[in-house]
Simulated assay, not measured.
Amino acid sequence: MTIIDRYILKKYLLTFGLMLLLFVPIGIMLNLAEQVGKMIDNEAPLVEILIYYGNFTIYIGSLLFPIFLFLSIIFFTSKMANNTEIVAILSSGVSFWRFLRPYWIGASIIAVLMFMMGMFIVPSASKGYNEFKYKYLKKGKQDRDKDNIFNQLGDRDYLYVSSFDPERQIGYNFTYEHFGEDGKLDYKISAANIRWMEEDSVYRLTTYTKRIVEGETERLETRRRLDTLFAFQIDDLTPVSYIAETKNLFELNEFIRDQQRKGASNVNTYIMVKYKRWALPITAFILTVIGVAVSSVKRRGGMGVNLAFGIGVAFIYIFMDKVFGTLAEQSGFPPLLAVGIPNLIFGFIGYYLLSKAKR
């Protein structure tokens, strides 16, 4: 590695680290200002608050990694271009592709960091972040996730809860339906709530009712409380966004296989999370290419024009990612294409801009 390589790589990594150090604390302060009232009202212990903000730092930092990386590349490369450093490097006989080598090295380092964090570190931080949020920031029934949670288990079993409390592991307005091979209802179980009892490894149903259909007749069973077993896991009652975020690479793969065996209708959402984690390191290279292509040429407007263009590209990329992600989750659009199309489009854009910058 030459002196120029070390010089550019140092700027690459230091500017990226500086972006994180500058903006992540701002995010923490904004979150604290918004949530401090709920923390005080719900008597959140200081130790748990500190742990929460440690997890919050990792969680938010991972979400903003691509944007910070992109802006840091534009910032220091534009500065080099304005100081005619790039012109001097290329005039010395260094080819443009050789000039890019330290950028590839930097992108590789960031890609490995993104991969390790996305697959193993962020899920653990996300679990602690969400547990604290549901325990202290969304405490009380009125603040629980109100999304109706429906899940299909295989071809003949369906379950539903009106809301789920991950901290207490309770689902409300629980319904479980089992259909026979002829497509007719065999039985239906209803309960005011269902709770997972960790110490006994059973489900506890409150205000339990079971309606059994036997030909033309029906039989009704009722109990005030019933401890029983089901073939599904407590994760099947958890809101999709919450449970997917908290599983590492191996846990998520196993969970997806389990959901596919059951024939769950929302398995595409989990697959999307998996593919996005794999695509994140590739994003580091794409954004590096676009960032260098945009900022390596000295412009009349200086760094401000490059930063404005970079922010615009970042928002378009995020918009496309959200659109295709929603298509995959809400329709039959393949998750692999939903993740791959934005990266392919911006990959071609980056190659075109880089070829133009080279000339």
Rank of each mutant, 00 (worst) to 15 (best):
N82C: 07
L100T: 03
Y187F: 15
F174C: 01
F99V: 07
I58A: 07
N253M: 09
V313P: 05
S72H: 06
Q169L: 08
A111T: 08
K10I: 08
V289A: 01
Y59H: 15
L237K: 00
M19A: 13
Q142C: 02
M114G: 08
L50C: 12
Q260N: 01
R168H: 03
G347D: 05
Q233F: 07
K138S: 04
M39Q: 14
M29S: 10
I51M: 13
M117Q: 13
F96I: 05
K135S: 09
S124H: 14
F96A: 06
V87N: 09
L46S: 13
M116H: 13
K322M: 15
L46I: 13
K276M: 12
G106P: 07
T77W: 00
T228I: 08
S108H: 04
Y352P: 07
D147F: 08
N268M: 00
V240W: 10
T326F: 09
F333L: 00
T206W: 12
K127W: 14
S201P: 02
S108V: 03
M197D: 06
V87M: 10
S163F: 01
K358M: 06
N266C: 00
P166G: 05
A284S: 09
F164P: 01
I286R: 01
P102A: 06
Y12S: 02
N148A: 12
F285K: 02
E245M: 15
R168K: 04
D147Y: 10
M19N: 06
Y160L: 11
V24R: 07
V305M: 11
I345Q: 01
K141P: 09
N193L: 14
F132H: 05
I349L: 10
E221V: 01
K322H: 14
P25W: 03
L344R: 14
I189W: 03
R300A: 13
A191V: 03
D182L: 04
M320E: 03
D5A: 14
I189C: 08
N253L: 10
V112F: 02
E85G: 05
F179W: 12
T77D: 01
T326W: 11
Y129L: 10
G310Y: 03
T228Y: 12
R224Q: 15
T84F: 14
F250N: 06
F56P: 02
V297K: 15
G350R: 02
E131F: 06
L287A: 02
L153A: 09
Y176P: 09
R277L: 07
S92M: 11
I86S: 04
L22D: 11
M197Y: 07
F179M: 11
E214L: 12
G183R: 03
E198L: 02
L14V: 15
L237G: 00
Y160I: 08
G17E: 08
G106T: 07
Y352W: 13
